[in-house]
Design a protein around this nucleic acid. Structure first.
Lengths: 148, 148
DNA sequence: TCAATATGGTTACAAATGTAACTGTCTATT
DNA sequence: AATAGACAGTTACATTTGTAACCATATTGA
């Protein structure tokens, strides 16, 4: 007799579904308020939290393909939320940083993000949140190992 | 002074990144072995584990947009892994079920899935896996509430 | 009974995404 | 130096996806 397989118990499936659910609710907020796409928000967040970075660094940091980053950078530049600065020694590289307007937008978006975090805490409960965070930490450790 | 916001700590971001990582490794397996897309695999899995369903039910079950389901059904039908049967009373509805070949493919894929689950256990460790599962359960509860 | 409305599923079109090829620049080896 | 290979970032093209309009059928209620 074949062993049972239950999709409902299968971690990749559950993880994906949960991520979609959690991310979508937040995405709806920044999309509605600012018309940002996810790659744009991620790029903004990377630069806002880590300061000046190159496009490649943004990609590694937020696990986005370099074409996504490239397009997001264009979009943010067009809004005047981001400026490019050339590296003195290596003209292939571009340093990216937020403009004053970009930094301001980032501040407002982080407020949204904090509000959402709080909402998640009530939605998932203290224990649920803790468990999820611990579980994600385990995945992150595994990811770090896999990268090597 | 502005409160700090750390993207690395932001749950939607972490969850998404983890889901991509975990799902991608498995997707690589069924894509390489069977040339299945994710919507196709999900549809197959839904039908394989729950038996006969309608397209709408598949969509709800695996949280896929109905156009995705529609396309996946076409693809699986073309492979002769799935057949459509009409509902006697309501001619809008189609019952979907796996063919013998489809059921066989499903069995093989569940074997892959179980292998991957085992791999995940060593990758994340017992504790990590438990925590993740508990955290996901909390999200699932929240999702169920939100749906109402 | 017949309009109005809802529902299951498909399709056309537009937007987002990934792959691969490309440009320009740098580094290493000879 | 000169050539080959590597690397940052962009662009062209093909594929995937979502949105909205659509068709056919079913249900509701005047």
């Amino acid at each position: 007799m074949a062993e049972e397989f239950d999709l409902e118990q299968f971690l990749p499936f559950r993880l994906n579904r949960a991520a979609e659910f959690i991310a979508l609710r937040f995405a709806a907020a920044y999309k509605a308020e600012y018309g940002l796409t996810r790659p744009e928000w991620r790029t903004l967040a990377a630069l806002g939290s880590s300061g000046r970075m190159t496009a490649t660094e943004v990609g590694v940091h937020s696990t986005m393909h370099k074409t996504k980053v490239s397009r997001a950078v264009f979009a943010l530049e067009e809004r005047r939320w981001l400026k490019r600065m050339q590296h003195e020694d290596d003209r292939r590289v571009e340093h990216l940083e937020l403009t004053v307007a970009g930094a301001k937008a980032y501040q407002e978006l982080t407020r949204l993000a904090r509000d959402y975090s709080a909402e998640l805490e009530t939605l998932l409960g203290q224990d649920g949140l803790k468990a999820l965070s611990a579980g994600l930490a385990a995945v992150e450790t595994a990811m770090a190992k896999a990268r090597r």
